[in-house]
Simulated scan of single mutants.
Amino acid sequence: MATTASTRRQFLSLLGLSAVAVSCGTTATGANSGKGQTKTLRYQGWAGQVTLPELAEDLGYLEDVKLKWVGNTISGPQDIQSAATGQIDFGGAFNGAVVKLASRHAPIKAVIGYYGVDRRQYNGFYVLKDSPIRSARDLIGKEVGMNTLGAHSEAMLDIYLQRHGLSQADIKKVEPLVVPPVNTEQTLRQKKIDVGVLGDILRDKALETGGIRPLFSDYQLLGAFTAGTYVMTERFLEQSPDTARTFVTGVARAIEWARATPREEVIDRQIEIVKKRGRNEDTDPLKHWKAFGVAETAGRITDKELQLWIDWLGERGDITKSQIKARDLYTNEFNAYRRKDTSSAAPSASSTHSGS
């Protein structure tokens, strides 16, 4: 576990390094030939999960564009750094990380939202049932376990503390710690941390076991919102605009397909995708999938989704608010989704191939 104050914002220094690498790294992009447009997109996946681009490809929505899996990641900030430096062709992260990376002059654009928070898809901050922690002020001097620092969960914690009147000096006394999600429940029950962030199947299993209670959730804090976006480099968008349009529109169609399709069918589709790619992954967690949580139709991006984090980072002193404008960070130009795009049934899982 990370236990020092310096680790609290470790991702910020990593993002700073990416600015140095961007100028030479972007030449590694799949679109660097300058002859035609690439039809293969390199990307990082998540073990045991199906990403929206993978779902889009399996549904046939990416048409002649193919995905090339180059490995897995466990960090959104790392994923978008890899995209910015040309190691992969698209990456996704929490919007605060996107803002931070853009503030370092990385030549990236957010092109579509891919995950969010709603009444079904949320992360909760949990304490033991007999914990004395009942309010934000009770967190002073306490430790909060989360999957990574400087990303979604730390942002939610900071906003919660700010909204309940804690000063910046007091907020700094609340210590976020890195705890792998699969270990969070056990670490909380063993009282090695005071609060644990739990979501999806890990949250549901912990609640079923009992003995814990929620302090707050990101949904209670901010309501439904799109929390993360996929980014591509400006160079890629300039050199392969048709490929970018096919990719973004395909992902948009997958978002709306998942929204309109019975949950059991979406789950079955994802399980089949994982089985076909043959990476010896556990599919049980997918049975608890509820939603992708994207708030806007087809994942279209709005100013407010990024402005929230510009304000948050500005209040933390991580960026100067005046140096960056939300509208400059994203484009919906490549999202050609129309509601009729998913009106016809997608091909069955048995008749398609993931190819990822």
Rank of each mutant, 00 (worst) to 15 (best):
T283Q: 03
K321A: 13
L313Y: 15
T302M: 07
V266P: 03
D318R: 04
K191N: 12
G113F: 04
A326L: 09
E63F: 01
E272P: 00
L15N: 03
T3V: 07
D268P: 00
T85V: 15
R338H: 15
F90S: 02
G141K: 07
K68G: 00
K191G: 03
D158T: 13
D130V: 01
N95I: 10
N123C: 02
I310C: 09
R245M: 05
G299S: 11
F94A: 01
G299V: 03
P180V: 13
W309V: 01
A97P: 11
V65D: 04
G36Q: 07
A102P: 05
F216Q: 05
G116Q: 05
A346D: 04
Q121D: 08
T85A: 09
R42A: 12
V274N: 02
T27S: 09
P180N: 09
H164C: 08
K129Y: 03
A291D: 15
D200V: 01
T27N: 13
V182Q: 14
E238D: 15
T320N: 15
A345T: 06
R120W: 10
F125G: 12
R327H: 14
T342N: 05
E143L: 13
S350Q: 13
S13V: 15
N123G: 09
H164S: 08
A336F: 09
L17S: 10
W69K: 11
S18N: 03
W257P: 03
H164K: 15
P347E: 06
R245N: 03
R245Q: 15
D89Y: 00
S13N: 13
T85Q: 11
K276Y: 09
V178E: 13
R327T: 13
K109W: 03
V99K: 03
E265K: 06
I171Q: 12
K191A: 12
N123A: 12
Y122G: 00
R279T: 02
A110V: 03
S153Y: 12
V197F: 09
A21E: 15
G48D: 02
V111P: 08
G116C: 04
F125P: 02
F11T: 11
L308Y: 10
R339P: 09
D284R: 14
E143D: 11
I310E: 08
P214L: 12
G30M: 08
T26C: 02
V174Q: 07
R263C: 00
I271E: 10
V22W: 04
W289H: 14
H288C: 07
T4V: 06
F225G: 00
S18H: 06
E63P: 00
S131F: 01
S344F: 05
D138F: 08
A206I: 00
T342L: 09
R277A: 03
L313T: 00
P180I: 11
C24P: 02
I171L: 07
S167R: 07
S322V: 07
A169I: 08
R8V: 14
S348L: 08
A19P: 06
R120I: 03
S351A: 12
Q186A: 15
E256Q: 11
D242Y: 06
R327C: 00
